[in-house]
Design a protein around this nucleic acid. Sequence first.
DNA 1: TGTCTAGACTTGTACGGACCACTTGGAGGG
DNA 2: CCCTCCAAGTGGTCCGTACAAGTCTAGACA
Lengths: 258, 258
Amino acid sequence: MPEPLSGDLPAYQEIADRLRARIVGGALGAGARLPSEQELRTLYGSSRETVRKALAILKAEGLVVSQHGRGVFVQRRGRVRRSAADRYVRSAWHAGISAGQADLGDRGPELRADMVRVETLEADAATAGRVDLPAGSRVVRRERRYLQGDRPLQLAVSFLPADIAGGTRAAEPDSGPGGSWARLEEAGWRFTVVREEVESRIPTFDEATLLHMSPGSPLLVVHRIATGERLGETRVLDYSAISLPAELHVLVYESAVR
Amino acid sequence: MPEPLSGDLPAYQEIADRLRARIVGGALGAGARLPSEQELRTLYGSSRETVRKALAILKAEGLVVSQHGRGVFVQRRGRVRRSAADRYVRSAWHAGISAGQADLGDRGPELRADMVRVETLEADAATAGRVDLPAGSRVVRRERRYLQGDRPLQLAVSFLPADIAGGTRAAEPDSGPGGSWARLEEAGWRFTVVREEVESRIPTFDEATLLHMSPGSPLLVVHRIATGERLGETRVLDYSAISLPAELHVLVYESAVR
DNA sequence: TGTCTAGACTTGTACGGACCACTTGGAGGG
DNA sequence: CCCTCCAAGTGGTCCGTACAAGTCTAGACA
């Protein structure tokens, strides 16, 4: 049963609109496979390029992802609220509650980390500047990916000054309950301020692959710099670059008016 | 002088990489016109589709925009830091300094607004919820576009409760020095907290047109809710939806660790 | 029973052509 | 001198084809 197009919009736009309606309307749920390009051609009476252009729009919106040789699949929807006010609460991470899990609340399966990699190396100039150290300083680099179920939610790369974190459990793959921040506070440091710089761009090929994103779908990037003090000394304790698929997240910040 | 491709990457990737190198390297400055699709075909010995796909990547990155009938042009680069901590300072807007201008510092031409539209109407359910009023409540809607030189920097739509802003200069197209917030404070209200919710997505057709963006280039959207009080009464004074071309902005927030 | 392979099906890349829509600048006419 | 119109050049849409590359399954085979 072919569905004729009206013609007042470009054909690829109309096809994208109709497919989008089937997805947001629930007719095509998360994980469902869209009709193949061939089927869409006969359904809408269009050429393959037109159909592919329609699919490219839905990919850029993050509604679907294609898998070479398999098909095009509907992505999970719904945004996770990542609230800075709820996140940077000392009592929570001392109680062993992960900040990421707190964001999710009780919706869906638990958050877990994989591809954890920890190493100690010399920081390049840009990274060293972020942690307020001279270039070449040794830092602990923690890299990992967080997933909820089988859907990657974020990539994170953290840098901690080696003279602070080195030798502690914060420099081990499993940093223990409450994460590396809890370990640093146990060592006498007290986190005071967190600055987050938010950007958005399209992902690199590697980022798109690791996060199961389409190449043209936007990515939120948070550069987070956490400062703390101990015995009157103020230091940058953590610089993290956090990459989030944009269609899955909303970042919440509160500021007092001064 | 054709430039042969190496072949270890898809042709469109290689072409995009080379054009990007010419842009970020400065050989093609802001405002410069790229070679036409026809010229790129002969330069790289590729088909039009391949060349167009390469250009699509640069468009999604926000490096270039195409203009129908004219060509493809290099966009202005460099990000504006929009810092919440510097922005929500009462003394600044009472001194008549616009928050947007403060972000820019002394770089480049001044910020100006155009396409200003102000009206009073009944809020739909979603908007009313943002300003914490029942659906159908009357609100003042302020819409405008900010530009630096001829480059649009943001779109903003604000909603103020009509029972608070109505009749004041905050409900007129020119809200005066310091903007509508200064007017509300003159009326006895005192802004206390600003909450910002940050999302990213690809723009609608209208947004892309107004902001001189490519359809696939990411947009940062800030939903800002400003709360204030007067005589012990706490109210949402302003809900604004602010749309920013992602490649031009970085949003900076600071949070105290509690 | 388990393993391998051939083929069908999927998306990815690349080529070709055609026509439309918009902009620009120059030729021509007033 | 100014205005109109047209031709050339540009990107936008749409069609066709072909082959490459990844996935899956049914059937052959050991």
